[in-house]
């Protein structure tokens, strides 16, 4: 498969979700940018709440990721299914952490 084929397939696959991808990017960049302008640095700020929320967001994927694909968790069965599911959960958790962590900094800075 050539790079052109992969690009074409990915482009068609992502097209219906472009709005969601843009929205997610805006939320992520917005939270990071605003917090960083206020002095936020990832390693210098600790937030158990943000970590917990990120974990919950990731684990919530067990419910909504199968539903998003018109399926159900009971059908996530093979080893490769679980590899993909766990990768998706980790991805969601990292995204959530990168949003909740700077937000928690901003909230703490307010009080």
């Amino acid at each position: 498969m050539t790079i052109a084929s992969i690009l074409t397939i990915v482009q068609y696959a992502l097209a219906p979700y472009l709005w969601l991808i843009v929205l997610a990017a805006v939320v992520l960049l917005g939270a990071q940018l605003i917090a960083r302008l206020g002095g936020y640095r990832y390693l210098r700020h600790k937030s158990a709440v943000a970590n917990g929320l990120a974990l919950v967001a990731g684990l919530s994927g067990l419910a909504w990721i199968p539903a998003f694909t018109h399926s159900q968790l009971a059908y996530v069965a093979t080893t490769f299914d679980w590899v993909v599911m766990i990768a998706a959960i980790i991805g969601v958790a990292i995204f959530a952490l990168l949003v909740f962590h700077p937000l928690s900094y901003l909230l703490r800075a307010r009080h």
Binding site: T8, I9, V10, Q11, Y12, A13, P66, T69, H70, S71, Y75, V76, A77, T78, F80, D81, V84, M85
Partner: peptide
């Protein structure tokens, strides 16, 4: 497999 179903649902049309 769920992944194969997801291929059918999301990837085969692209």
């Amino acid at each position: 497999s769920w992944v194969t179903w997801t291929f059918k649902d999301k990837m085969l049309q692209p």
